[in-house]
Amino acid sequence: MTHTLVPATEADGRTAALLAAVRLQRPAFEGAALRAEEERTLPEDIVTMMRDLGLFWLKTPTELGGSELDPISFCDVLEEIAYYDASAGWAAMIGNGTTGCIAAWLADEGIAEIFTDDPLPIMAGQFTPRGSAIADGDGFRVSGRWSFSSGILHSSWLVGGCRIDGTDELVLAVVPKSEATVHDTWHVAGLQGTGSHDFSLTDVHVPAARICRWFGAAPKRGGLLFRQPQLLFLANELSPVAVGIARRAVDDMYEMAAATARGPRGSVLADRLAFQKDISVAESRVRAMQLLYRDAVAQGWEIARTGADASDVLVSRLRAQHTLIVEECLDVVSRIFRYGGGRALSLKNPMQRHLRNLTAAMQHVYISDENYEVAGRARIAEVAAGRP
Rank of each mutant, 00 (worst) to 15 (best):
A82F: 11
G100C: 06
S73D: 15
T60Y: 03
D70P: 08
I46W: 06
G125S: 11
P43K: 02
M50N: 02
D45R: 14
L55E: 03
I102L: 15
C101F: 14
E79C: 06
L64P: 02
E39F: 13
W90L: 14
G89R: 04
E68G: 00
W90C: 09
G95R: 01
L78T: 00
S67R: 08
W105N: 02
I72F: 11
L64K: 00
A92D: 01
Y83E: 07
T60C: 11
K59V: 08
P43W: 10
C75W: 10
A104G: 07
W90R: 10
P61S: 05
L42N: 02
W105Q: 03
T48C: 04
I122L: 11
A107G: 00
A112C: 00
E68K: 04
T60D: 01
L106P: 01
L55N: 01
C101A: 12
E63H: 01
A33D: 12
L120C: 04
R40P: 03
L78V: 01
Y84H: 14
A91M: 13
F127S: 02
E109R: 11
G66P: 09
W57K: 01
F56Y: 15
P61R: 04
R40A: 10
L55I: 01
E80L: 11
L34V: 12
A82E: 06
T60A: 07
M49T: 11
D108Y: 00
P121Q: 05
T116F: 02
M49C: 04
A92F: 05
D70M: 09
L53C: 05
F74I: 00
A36L: 07
P119C: 04
W90D: 06
A86N: 04
P119L: 05
W105M: 03
T99C: 10
P43M: 08
S87C: 10
V47C: 10
G65N: 08
D108Q: 13
I111L: 09
D70T: 03
R40N: 06
L53P: 02
W57S: 13
D118K: 12
A33Y: 11
Y83W: 10
A112I: 00
P121D: 09
S73A: 12
D45Y: 14
T98N: 13
E44C: 00
A112L: 04
N96H: 08
E79N: 09
E109G: 10
L34E: 15
R51V: 00
L78W: 03
F127N: 01
